[in-house]
Amino acid sequence: MLETTVPEGPVIRIFRAMKLPVGDNFAMAGLIIYVIFALTAIFAPVLAPYEPTEILYTVDYDLASDLLPGQEGHILGTTSLGRDIFSQIVFGARAALLVGLTAAFMVAFIGTIVGLISGYYGGWVDTILMRLADVAFGIPFLPFVIVISAFLEPSIWNTVIAMALVLWRDTARVIRSQVLTLRSRGYVEAARVSGSSDFKIILRHIAPNIVPLSLLYGSIAIGWAILTEASISFLGFGDPNSISWGFMLQDAFASQALSRQAYHWFIPPGLAIIFVVSAGFFISRGYENLLFPKLGR
């Protein structure tokens, strides 16, 4: 293998610290999907031919309902209320991106902080935090999110907060055990003895080794969050003001799309979800191979 030394700019160095799994095929596919997804979300108003909730009419002023893909220029057809499915899919990317990123950030953030404190300080702090994690493992995730979303006013934020309140547990446990191994290493011990402050030690010696793990769990959480938001919307507890893929599926289900065999209506949102969520899985797989390399995989 050839090794070339290219002078590294700061961007490259940051990327290197995050250990992005650029060498892994799975992970690269995932990253590319993410980029497409993010661009779709950002440029949704440009890409979508119609407003997602706009009720459309045909040239002869009939309701443009239940059009099949291709009819009247609708790429994916229309819903039974005469809304353009393709435009809804495009705008759905916004909701998904918003939910995915905020939830992933919160999960990774809370989980990392809890794991760091728990692992670094040990003792009763650790005991309490880990018992809390046990409790979080005892809470049925989806029912909890449903109840919270239903009781508070339905909004994307409440759904995200409800998810974060439960999902931090996995990240916290993993980060904690990683911190425990790091803490037992010589240089952390040495820094302690030489009187470095805890804050400094965590920042200098521990955090850099933990960033990739946090990112791994964050990338897993993106998928979970999108799936959960879809379920919540499907059950009718979602944000009524946002067009999400889960909302589209609920709309289709409630409008008898199944019995009317309107496959063009309910297949695309599902595929969109699969596409984006598997991208998260691919990336996390790449990360795992990178962080926990095992020969022969």
Binding site: L249, A257, Y263, G270, I274, S278, F281
Partner: peptide, 26 residues
Amino acid sequence: LPIVLATRAMPEFWLGMVLLAIFSFS
């Protein structure tokens, strides 16, 4: 492997809808 990963990425209820549409309604 990619197919297996994709099944994990499916919303369960959507899979249910698809199966329902095919095996029951169609």
